[in-house]
Simulated scan of single mutants.
Amino acid sequence: MIGTSPRAKLLDAAIDHIARHGGAGKSLRALAADLGTSHRMLIYHFGSKEGLLTAVAREVEARQRAALAGLGPADAGREFWRRLTDESLRANEKLFFQLYGQALGGTPGTTGLLDGVVDDWLGPIEALLAGLGVPEADRAAHARLGLAVARGLLLDLVTTGDRAAVDAAMERFLAMSGGHA
């Protein structure tokens, strides 16, 4: 749970609901009913359906970064990949990519997703790379490459559902990078 304010409680409920049932295709009123609130309360707290979904995606990303920061350097790449590809995150990952495309297209209520969508990850990844002994001069490029590969493979997973293939590709990437991903 991220907090006890009414907005935080609604956001927690939305994250849980979307993880189990999806939600991008539902109307704001249907989402509100599913969450046990009114569409007016969602508009008050999030501005729109897109604002709610963007807040969900940003919070899920923040939780994933916190999970990464909690891992030790030993085998962190594989452990983090295992967490990212857990079936319980599939609906949230699909939502992320749907919103990412909308945000790039300028859809109102979604453009906030782009704030820090790359940069917020680079620091935690670079910190992990430092613990692995990656030279400081190489960390930024390694971090960006690792993020790009992970996101690309996650997009592949939500598109194809081929877990074995994406796991094999990630394993190959980790081997090629000496585990510094």
Rank of each mutant, 00 (worst) to 15 (best):
A57H: 13
R58W: 06
R58S: 15
E59N: 11
E59D: 12
E61I: 02
E61Y: 01
A62P: 00
R63Q: 11
R63A: 02
Q64T: 02
Q64H: 02
R65V: 12
A66V: 10
A66M: 06
A67H: 10
L68T: 01
L68I: 03
G72S: 10
G72P: 01
P73M: 07
P73G: 15
A74Q: 10
A74K: 10
A74C: 01
D75I: 08
A76D: 08
R78N: 06
E79V: 13
F80M: 07
F80S: 07
F80L: 06
F80D: 02
W81N: 06
W81K: 09
R82Y: 01
R83G: 09
R83A: 10
R83N: 03
R83P: 03
L84H: 06
L84Y: 05
T85C: 12
E87T: 15
E87S: 15
E87Y: 06
E87V: 15
S88H: 15
S88I: 05
S88Q: 12
S88F: 09
L89I: 01
L89A: 08
L89Q: 07
L89V: 01
L89E: 11
R90Y: 12
R90C: 03
A91P: 07
E93L: 03
E93Q: 08
E93V: 04
E93A: 02
L95C: 07
L95A: 07
L95E: 09
L95I: 08
F96Q: 06
F97S: 02
F97T: 00
Q98C: 03
Q98K: 04
L99D: 12
L99S: 12
Y100G: 05
Y100C: 00
Y100K: 06
Y100P: 03
G101D: 00
G101N: 08
A103R: 09
A103W: 15
L104V: 15
L104F: 07
L104H: 12
L104G: 13
L104W: 04
L104Y: 02
G105H: 08
G105L: 11
G106C: 05
T107A: 12
T107D: 03
T107Q: 12
T107G: 03
P108V: 10
G109I: 06
G109N: 10
T110N: 05
T110G: 00
T111H: 01
G112M: 11
L113N: 10
L113T: 14
L113E: 11
L113G: 12
L114A: 10
G116L: 09
G116A: 09
V117F: 13
V118G: 01
V118N: 02
